[in-house]
Simulated scan of single mutants.
Amino acid sequence: MGQPVPVSVVALDPVLEAGTTSTLAACPDVDVTVSGERPRVVVMIVDRFARAELDMLHAARDTDARPAVVLVASELTAAEALHALAAGARGLLRRRDADGSRLARAVCAAARGDCTVPPDLLDQLLEHSAAAARTPGEAPGPWAAAGLSDRERDVLRMVADGHETSEIARCLAYSQRTVTTIVHDITQRFRLRNRAHAVAYALRAGLL
């Protein structure tokens, strides 16, 4: 067995944070860090993965150490899982399954660069990926699951292909202002920095 993985815990609920910290402290494969130390993995405990939690994940990742993040949620839909993975999460667990041993395994996997996803949730993600090739009129694919409309999908795909705003507007018969608004709405909704980040987000989520 190698050196224990330095890990820290963050949560919006201090009781959950304290409980998870205590659970991990009893696991020999991990070492809970103290304030000021740099963790290799951050365990993030949430109820659902919405805007506040997305901001929290970005804050955990945007440090000099760039730690991996294991997200533990009460419930996770396929769309929420897509957002979490695209934002940099390296592990997904439901709280009911996150006992000490499973949580420690997910932390160690994240430290190695591997990704842990519950089997049933992985099946849903694979189904969404397979749906990407479906023709219009069939069941919605991952774009719809991620909360993107057909119009937003079309614009973002053209952005990914390197087209300028004027070219996208001309091709899709929109005004340039409409195209700009669509891109702005996408970046604001998913807390993205710019057009390039929006494309990278979609690629990492398997949506392009």
Rank of each mutant, 00 (worst) to 15 (best):
V5I: 11
L192V: 03
V69H: 05
R96G: 14
A84S: 03
A132L: 15
D13A: 15
V34I: 06
R94D: 15
T23Q: 09
R96A: 05
A98Y: 00
V32Q: 04
L71A: 09
A104H: 01
G113F: 07
D55F: 14
D55M: 06
F190P: 00
D55V: 11
L103T: 06
C171I: 13
L82E: 06
D123R: 06
A202E: 07
P4M: 08
L148V: 15
P119R: 04
A11T: 06
A200D: 13
R157H: 12
R170E: 15
E164P: 10
M158H: 02
L126N: 08
A202G: 05
S74M: 12
V15D: 11
N194M: 08
L57Y: 04
E17L: 11
R193I: 15
R105T: 09
R105C: 12
T187A: 07
E138H: 14
H197E: 15
P140W: 02
T77P: 03
L208W: 13
Q124H: 11
L92R: 01
A79H: 12
C171N: 13
A145I: 00
V15G: 11
P4H: 09
V9E: 01
L54I: 03
I186S: 10
R177A: 14
T178I: 03
T181A: 14
V32T: 04
H184M: 09
A65W: 05
P118H: 02
S175T: 10
L24R: 03
E53T: 02
L92W: 05
M56P: 04
E17D: 07
D62M: 14
D64E: 14
R170N: 14
V9S: 00
T135S: 14
L103P: 04
P119T: 01
G19N: 13
A146V: 03
D29C: 05
I45Y: 01
W143D: 02
V5K: 07
I168Q: 06
D161I: 01
P14Q: 05
R177V: 11
L85H: 02
L103Q: 02
W143R: 00
S129I: 03
E167V: 13
H58V: 15
A106D: 00
A78Y: 04
C27I: 02
R95W: 08
L57E: 08
R96T: 12
L103K: 02
R66S: 09
A198Q: 06
T165K: 09
